[in-house]
Design a protein around this nucleic acid. Structure first.
Lengths: 152, 152
DNA sequence: GTCTATGCAAAACGTTTGCAGATAT
DNA sequence: ATATCTGCAAACGTTTTGCATAGAC
């Protein structure tokens, strides 16, 4: 063991919580989940463990707009579909996107190592429903700022 | 003007700041930028304006792992390449990804409305350099948790 | 025995909000 | 005139950190 990482019950509990979940949990949810069995677990421990697990490829951290990070037990490369209605997150595999890496590398001059696509839409339950949270989809038919807002 | 949105100097300054920038600024950077000209600008005003501008399609909000939201003057659909070395963000167009929406919709049962791909890699300047921040790329050769960590 | 991890509590960080006064229409 | 917006300051949720103690090796 070169680096000296230690195998503790807390880390095992935290990894188990991520793996037992059928959804993508936030750190707070993982904390609550572990705390049911071990009431002395600390928030800091959860965050430190999740970072360590993510660094070592045992879980995958996901970040989405205006909400807490979520943790995925799947560590192979894959993509996500995010429901704008209820927020549910579903794993998908979109192998065709591999082609895109060449395009991105050519356009940017980068050495591209990985990629992740987030699709946004509506799950089966939320199709047809429109909520106030969807206001962001309304476009600017009636809104203008000064008269320079049509450049570019 | 149906909704009653008002055209204020602050909103114009904030939109101008996003448009004048050659990079993708955070709300904090936009605040600092506007404050140079108008020292009385408030943080709350910047956030409220950015949300309004984003809702109306005049700027685009971008969210990435473990950092603040950034704002993009480009409002057409496009993707991003993120440098793991220096953090720089570059716009790219990857039209081939449109095919992927069908795959994602079929696999998830969602009605897919949009998608966004983030490519991670190294810009021209950072190629060849390795920093401590890249620790996340090291895999778990020497790290194990209990003996159940090879399922799945 | 030594070095790493935990629990705790405080703080840091990005962001949101209530309110009184200012401003756009 | 009136509804919206601003500045301020406080609060919020998430995440990080310092430190003494507990625990893994």
């Amino acid at each position: 063991m070169t680096k000296g990482y230690r195998n503790t019950v807390q880390r095992t509990q935290i990894l188990d919580a991520v793996r037992a979940a059928d959804s993508h949990l936030t750190a707070g949810e993982i904390f609550e989940c572990v705390r049911r069995r071990d009431p002395r677990i600390a928030y800091g421990t959860v965050y430190r463990a999740l970072h360590l697990l993510a660094q070592h490829g045992l879980v995958q951290e996901l970040t989405f707009a205006d909400q807490a990070s979520r943790y995925d037990k799947r560590v192979d490369r894959h993509d996500h579909v995010h429901c704008l209605g209820c927020g549910v997150l579903v794993d998908v595999d979109v192998p065709v996107a591999l082609i895109a890496r060449h395009v991105a590398a050519e356009q940017s001059g980068f050495e591209v190592e990985s990629h992740h696509t987030v699709f946004a839409g509506r799950c089966r339950e939320c199709k047809g429903k429109r909520t106030t949270a969807d206001a962001r989809h309304n476009r600017a038919e009636t809104f203008a700022l000064a008269d320079d807002e049509r450049e570019g």
